[in-house]
């Protein structure tokens, strides 16, 4: 039996040796093909960003040329200041920052407290309650929006920041994410702290939060990005000048998509709105990709 295997593998080794040059060529061709495919796809993915940036720097007359230029002949930084004032981006930025920061802080507090209760404390009906929370994740948000719209207007919150912040403070998904993280911290630490007379809150602050910091950072980033990209709900409840969020303001300032619009200025505004997202991505890529992929695989 072992002889057969031996002679077999010897033959195969010989085969491999014999066709090695042909295989080498084929392998190089395959590698080249793989790289060519990936580079073409990468170019397609990047092209809109490139087009946004060069268009934002062109003079309107250059943008309108029949034969496109791939680099601005005259770099028009002025488009950016024009875009900034035309779309009132300063105010929009402050509104969005305010909503983002307040809702992130409140949301973190609520999430940490609930995740702690689910991960560390014992109480009647814990599993049932947690299961019920998870079940709500299946429902599409549109189902809540209709009633929330009525609730918010009954509460007199129309055209206030409150309407933009409060309805979305609790995210079952974040509670779930953080609970999983908290559960990985050994319970012995908690019991030891209890013996030493440490209060729950102190233990949370000194032990659990530092250990779960990566998850908390992921939640913060996703929450801030959520505020930055929100469009539908703000359009319904607070689309007035004083409370407008940045995406709504951007879309409203440039309604003309296909006419004689000053596209370079429009692209400059788009670039300004996109820039913070890229900065966050550049510096905190690890946390974003972790948050996104974890939301995927564990479910």
């Amino acid at each position: 039996m072992s002889n057969v295997i031996n002679s077999n593998s010897v033959m195969q080794a010989k085969d491999i040796h014999m066709i090695s040059t042909g295989q080498k060529v084929r392998r190089i061709l395959a590698k080249t093909g793989t790289y060519a495919f990936l580079l073409v796809m990468a170019l397609i993915v990047l092209f809109p960003f490139y087009w946004m940036i060069i268009s934002s720097l062109k003079e309107l007359s250059e943008y309108r040329q029949a034969i496109p230029t791939f680099w601005p002949q005259k770099v028009m930084w002025g488009n950016y200041s024009k875009a900034f004032s035309q779309a009132n981006l300063g105010d929009l930025f402050m509104n969005t920052l305010y909503v983002g920061v307040v809702s992130t802080i409140l949301s973190l507090v609520i999430t940490v407290l609930s995740a702690f209760a689910f991960a560390r404390l014992e109480f009647k009906g814990k599993e049932t309650l947690f299961g019920a929370l998870l079940a709500t994740m299946m429902l599409p948000g549109e189902l809540f929006t209709i009633t929330n719209y009525i609730t918010v207007s009954d509460l007199g919150w129309m055209h206030t920041f409150t309407a933009l912040i409060v309805p979305f403070l609790v995210s079952v998904f974040y509670i779930y994410l953080l609970r999983q993280n908290f559960m990985q911290i050994p319970n012995e630490l908690y019991l030891a702290a209890k013996v030493d007379g440490t209060t729950d809150l102190k233990y949370l602050w000194k032990v659990m939060i530092p250990l779960a910091l990566p998850t908390l950072i992921s939640i913060t980033i996703l929450k801030m990005m959520g505020a930055w990209n929100s469009y539908i709900w703000p359009k319904l409840v607070a689309n007035d000048a004083e409370h407008q969020m940045i995406t709504n303001g951007l879309r409203n300032a440039f309604t003309d998509v296909s006419g004689q619009a000053d596209i370079p200025v429009q692209m400059a505004a788009v670039a300004i709105v996109s820039a913070p997202l890229f900065m966050v991505f550049l510096f905190l890529r690890k946390y974003i990709m972790q948050g996104v992929s974890r939301s995927g695989i564990k479910g």
Partner: peptide
């Protein structure tokens, strides 16, 4: 990590 409305405007252009 993009704003789907902002980049939509780039595609429109």
């Amino acid at each position: 990590v993009t704003n789907s409305i902002a980049i939509g405007m780039v595609f429109a252009a």
